[in-house]
């Protein structure tokens, strides 16, 4: 059996706000295998996004370890950390807020290639064209500004940008929550296709159990900074054990097909 792609163990994080201490992460441990989707669900303030930020090293945990591709990720810095970050990409909920709205699609996709020195200037247009193709966008979009394209197209650009550095793991923080339902299905199918083709693992953060059940292999339910339940997505949703898991299932809107 191959080693897991990412192992997080015993993560702790406290924030102080106005003299009060908030425990954001309380002994959080989990693993993600290669090509696997782990969904993180929980109510607002349960610590989901803090986990994402810690994994990406946007914030440092107070205690705990993160091993990524077998190496101690928290010990890395400088060039090693930058190289590691290329393998670990992020897609946010609102790409309009994540990108410069006036930048063109080509510019947004050029950045990671340039920053991570993945291709010289002459080769980049070809790579950009292939990235657009992989996320199902027309090459004609390359010169359009981010603010001119639709929300669904923008989220495809965000995925293309994350793909540019050939990541092993993508963190998707509420990445489909702001999309119209008809577009949402297409983006989820794109994510599944990419996972199958390139064996990418996803940490999929969402409060929508229906979506999680549809695309995740495993799910971890968080409450008040702790992982309170974890298991295969379909099983956990069908038969939640934790109080918060039960509450999430009960609160999920159901199409009422009254006779």
């Amino acid at each position: 059996m191959t080693a897991p792609l990412l192992v997080a163990s015993g993560l702790h994080k406290r924030f102080s706000r106005g003299g009060k201490t908030v425990v954001a992460l309380d002994n959080v441990s989990f693993e993600i295998g290669q090509g696997e989707t782990l969904a993180l669900v929980g109510p607002s303030g349960s610590g989901k996004s803090t986990v994402a930020r810690t994994i990406l090293r946007l914030i440092e945990p107070d205690a705990g370890n993160i091993h990524f591709e077998g190496e101690d990720f928290l010990a890395q810095h400088g060039a090693r950390l930058r190289a590691g970050r290329a393998k670990l990409q992020m897609v946010f909920q609102d790409p309009l807020a994540a990108f410069n709205p006036r930048a063109t699609v080509a510019r947004v996709l050029d950045d990671p290639l340039r920053i991570h020195d993945l291709a010289d200037r002459a080769h980049r247009p070809k790579i950009i064209a292939s990235l657009l193709d992989r996320v199902g966008l027309s090459p004609n979009l390359r010169d359009r500004a981010i603010h001119e394209i639709s929300g669904g197209q923008r989220q495809r650009v965000a995925i293309a940008r994350a793909l540019a550095t050939k990541p092993a793991l993508m963190v998707l923080d509420e990445a489909v929550s702001a999309l119209d339902v008809s577009v949402r299905g297409q983006i989820l199918e794109l994510l599944l296709d990419l996972q199958e083709a390139e064996n990418i693992a996803y940490l999929f953060i969402s409060h929508d159990l229906g979506v999680v059940r549809s695309i995740a292999h495993r799910v971890a339910i968080m409450d008040a900074g702790r992982i309170v339940e974890t298991g295969p997505a379909a099983e956990v949703v069908a038969n939640p054990k934790s109080a918060i898991g039960k509450a999430l299932v009960a609160a999920t809107p159901k199409l009422l097909r009254k006779a």
Binding site: V181, E189, E196, G210, S214, I215, A234, V237, L255
Partner: peptide, 17 residues
């Protein structure tokens, strides 16, 4: 719109894939 709803009773996309 009804078909696009991802309820807790529909066939998961992952399983379909």
């Amino acid at each position: 719109l009804l078909d696009a709803h991802m309820g807790l009773d529909v066939e998961p996309l992952l399983r379909k894939a």
